[in-house]
Nucleic acid binder design. Structure first.
Lengths: 336, 336
DNA sequence: CTGTTAGCGCATTCAA
DNA sequence: TTGAATGCGCTAACAG
């Protein structure tokens, strides 16, 4: 018969063991040792050590409305970009003793909604979110309740909250410039459905702009990766045109992966028959084919910045919502 | 002046709004609607809807000792294996309304220790951990307190807790058989420091066994990936031997990545000059070089199984600790 | 069927 | 410097 009894020691036992009142123990826990006689400080310390006491975050949280938990909601934790960001968030959280609740939404607004409600029930102190943009009402509620929110990667101007992004427009333009300079005259932009998602939008717009300025007709393929054949079809169509130097700019890492897959299956040579470039960078980009030229996002830094911002808000910073823009970097490899 | 007041609605307000006592509301929340008159059920439902009420997990947790949170501790969340597992855990958690606290240890026992204490303070209901193996005392405490633990990937026999692993020995032997059959006579095993970490140990032992049975002398390189040069040195040494068909079996995904890196830098052709095979599988393994032959771990399934186990334990299953062994699968590509 | 009461573990007045 | 009392939001007897 196993004992399922929660033997978890409470403040009461510590108080009894140390021969003081629990108020005094509480004072000790909260670092107000200067209000306690040296004698009792010693005793309490001893009691805590010997009993392995650790104050309950639940009880503390209930009392002071501080759960020491922050929520992290991403569309897809499988995405290396998300993981890198999480790592950054975690780094800062550790520093301040926060824990992280991680939630996946699969880009589905209903699931995001559920997660938000769940996190709300946990009294999270802050929220870092890569949002679908369809649950602004709940986000507003958080804000109203004094829970700071930081949007990562995806902006939502109407929400007026802190945001951490990258310089998508500039960097996209610069990358395209390089592509044109290399003689790629016929550049297509492949993207997942834009759908009001800001980084996709910005990259697409930058592409259009650049193409126009070069007097080229933009070629944009919005591809739903769940539709198995769509990528193939768009790719084949693009390849069939008998222009000279063709290249594809892939709108994000996931799309790039699928794109290369198709290219390999089709036996198309990179960069011989087609040049490619994209966004996001991972350790294996340099190992695929000739190495992929890409825009490296400072995702780890973004995570750190986001959590850092949460912290300052929690400390009472009431200044206007800020957009922190970190710079992506073009990593030149041989795929162009 | 922003209002920081927690406007979060409580059970009391719902009770008042609905004109009933909070006990009745509590009954409603806990699904005991059959104990309540239809009339009041209606009123409470209305009140909850209009007030957007959601019971506080903190308060509930404090009361019933059920935080609805489980802890997930991994050495490195950046590792795709960890992420896939997390995904599996999450899937089951969603089903039952659990939230996940994710922690990184970087394989450092002290950090793991800290995380364990933190999670303990949060009254987690279950723990899924890829442990360093150096904090068995705390793990024992969890167990004693009735918090079920599931070890993923790494075993710890002395702990007597549920464990989810893969058939490392068998699959390693099978892979090696295939390698020998393909004529690779000179196979080395590259691994991160074994250090009592069970999967590494098992793979290494399987390698030794197979080599011996073929009357080959095992060539084992334990490589600390933090030592920048070590991989290169071991690799060069192995390459210098003037045997005929050489191959390397890489002990895990991270090591494989570094290995290929070196190979590419050295300009060594795969599989022309050397054959390689490894463990873990990711979407890009098939895109690197000729495609990497590897053992795919059912990491997603492992996560699911782990959380599933937690759940049955939570439901009162007191049977003896179980080791769930899921089967890895050899994915044959062209790197051999 | 329903409300009253008493805590869960803690922090915070308020007196002493 | 200290302890007793109160309540955070909720659930679980216990009456009625």
């Amino acid at each position: 018969m196993k004992e399922k009894k929660q033997t978890k020691v409470t403040i009461n036992e510590v108080a009894a063991y140390a021969g003081v009142s629990k108020s005094t123990v509480s004072r000790y826990i909260n670092g107000r040792t200067n209000e306690i006689s040296a004698e009792k400080v010693r005793k309490i310390k001893k009691a805590i050590d010997e009993l392995h006491y650790r104050p309950s975050q639940l009880a503390q949280g209930l009392k002071v409305r501080k759960s020491k938990v922050i929520g992290f909601i991403v569309a897809d934790i499988t995405n290396p970009f998300s993981v890198a960001t999480l790592r950054g968030v975690e780094e800062i959280c550790d520093e301040y003793g926060y824990s992280i609740m991680v939630c996946n939404t699969d880009n589905r607004p209903e699931k995001e909604r559920e997660m938000l409600l769940k996190l709300n029930a946990h009294y999270i102190e802050g929220l870092i979110i890569n949002t679908t943009g369809q649950n602004n009402d709940i986000l507003q509620d958080f804000k109203k309740n004094g829970v700071p929110i930081v949007l990562v990667d995806r902006k939502l101007p109407e929400l007026k909250v802190d945001t951490v992004t990258t310089n998508n427009r500039d960097i996209t333009i610069r990358l395209l410039q390089q592509m044109y300079e290399k003689g790629y005259d016929h550049i297509a932009f492949f993207t997942e459905p834009v759908d009001g998602i800001s980084p996709r939008e910005e990259r697409k717009e930058a592409y259009e702009l650049t193409a126009m300025s070069k007097h080229k007709k933009p070629i944009i393929a919005e591809i739903d990766l769940k539709q198995k054949e769509q990528m193939r079809e768009e790719l084949v169509r693009f390849l069939q045109s008998n222009e000279q130097k063709k290249a594809i700019l892939a709108g994000n890492g996931l799309l790039m992966l699928k794109l290369i897959n198709e290219l390999v299956e089709l036996g198309i040579k990179i960069p011989g028959e087609i040049g490619i470039a994209g966004f996001d960078d991972t350790e294996w980009y340099k190992l695929i084919g000739p190495g992929i030229t890409t825009v490296a996002q400072p995702s780890h830094e973004m995570g750190k910045a986001a959590m850092q911002k949460i912290k300052t808000r929690l400390e009472g910073d009431e200044s206007a919502p800020q957009t922190i823009q970190l710079d992506g970097e073009i990593i030149v490899r041989k795929s162009l």
